[in-house]
Simulated scan of single mutants.
Amino acid sequence: MRNFFFPIAILSTLVVFSSCNKEQKNIKLTMAEPNPEGSISAKVDHEFIKKVEELSNGNITIELHASGILGDNTAVLKAMTQPGSRGINIARLSPAAIANYGCTMHGLLGVPYTFKNHAHFWKFASSPVAEVILDEPYKAGIGVKGLFFMEEGFRHFFSTKPLNDIEDFEGEKIRTAGNSVMEGISLGMKGQSVNVAFTALYSALQTGKVSIAEQPLVNYLANDFHKVAPYMILDGHELGAAEVVIASETWDSLSKEQKEILVKAGKYAGEYCMNAVQEKEKEAKEILTAEGAKFTEVKDISKWQKACADVISETVRSNTAIYGEIINLAD
């Protein structure tokens, strides 16, 4: 009798991955989000989820777990890339985390000073070169496939101490989270690279384990980092590109129609993000200023670019042609 009941027990524990059968109509998926509810990325996630449910007439539902409950970028990606892993089906991740798996084209999105402005990024996000990068981990057999890109605004450095210019970075402990590009930036600025998980960053700033980190304005506010590190210098070294990915095992289990629904919903969510980010950046800065955050403008970016010259050339070295395509999309 046990053999007859065993499959039923397994299915009951894997309700979050009921998509294993292409013919099954009702599909419930689990989505991981490192940032908290209220953040711009979580709001985009919800728009994506609503559109998926709408387009599928409620046959595909997605349960969002925000605030890093399922782990940070590294932990989530590791879980998704394990053969047979069914706990997390979809996640919003940093392209840098995927680049760490050998997907070098993903690393191009984190190259300092690549995107001139928001319009430049969104022109890229809807271009053929973006599709090539989204497919990179799937074709490489990493275990995930990109669905769509989004952004969290330009990233800026913030600190527990005043930041007036690039010279203030020398000797400081800079959070890099194992990101080779960030480590290169830290080296160029003569700082000390410290690997700290995002979920531990607040306490690391409190205790002095790190003194400098970087985030987009909206995330800086959403995570209350300004309460422990109130000084931000608006260098805009990177546009905070993010990517929603799906586990390859989940993707391969879906029908053609189901895949089209996810892709279409992704495009809708991307458009929502494009329209929302700049407005949220402005609102966030106003709130942060009112709550005591101190901002410094960067008048001359040239010495910052010079400090990053080595990491820029190293990161684009194996993908110079495709990087050139991204740069040429600027208006």
Rank of each mutant, 00 (worst) to 15 (best):
A241R: 06
G236C: 13
I326L: 10
K299I: 07
K259G: 07
Q215F: 14
P216W: 10
E260Q: 15
N328G: 06
K264W: 03
A307E: 12
V311T: 13
N223F: 10
Q278A: 11
T315P: 03
K306R: 12
N219R: 00
M274P: 11
E238T: 06
T296P: 09
S211E: 15
I246E: 02
L288K: 00
L217I: 02
K282H: 14
V263D: 03
N319E: 04
V210I: 14
S313P: 05
G240H: 04
I301H: 11
N275D: 15
D300P: 14
V263F: 13
Y272P: 03
I246P: 06
K259F: 04
C273D: 14
D252H: 04
G236L: 08
S302W: 11
I233D: 01
K299A: 13
N219T: 04
C308P: 00
L234Y: 10
A222R: 02
T296V: 09
V298R: 02
A293I: 08
V210L: 05
D300G: 08
K282V: 09
S248A: 04
V245Y: 03
A265P: 08
A293G: 10
E286C: 12
E243W: 01
A247H: 03
K209F: 03
Q215T: 13
I322Q: 00
E291W: 01
T296E: 12
K267D: 07
H226Q: 11
Q305R: 15
N275W: 05
N319L: 01
M274L: 13
K209P: 11
L217P: 00
V298M: 05
E281Q: 12
V277L: 04
T250G: 10
P230H: 00
G266K: 02
E238A: 08
K227F: 02
D224R: 12
M274V: 14
G270I: 10
I301P: 13
T207C: 08
E283T: 07
F225Q: 01
G208M: 07
S253V: 00
T296K: 14
E238G: 01
A241K: 02
H237E: 09
V298G: 02
N328R: 09
D310Q: 15
A269E: 07
L239Y: 09
W251E: 01
F295H: 05
E260D: 07
E286T: 09
G240T: 01
L217A: 02
A309Y: 12
L329T: 01
K264S: 11
K303C: 08
Q206I: 06
Y272I: 07
T320I: 15
L234V: 09
L234W: 05
S302D: 14
N319G: 00
I246M: 06
F295E: 05
G240L: 02
E238K: 05
L239E: 04
E257T: 12
D224M: 04
T320S: 11
E283K: 03
L234H: 08
M232R: 04
L221S: 03
D224F: 03
N219H: 06
C273Q: 12
S248G: 02
P230I: 00
D310I: 15
L329N: 01
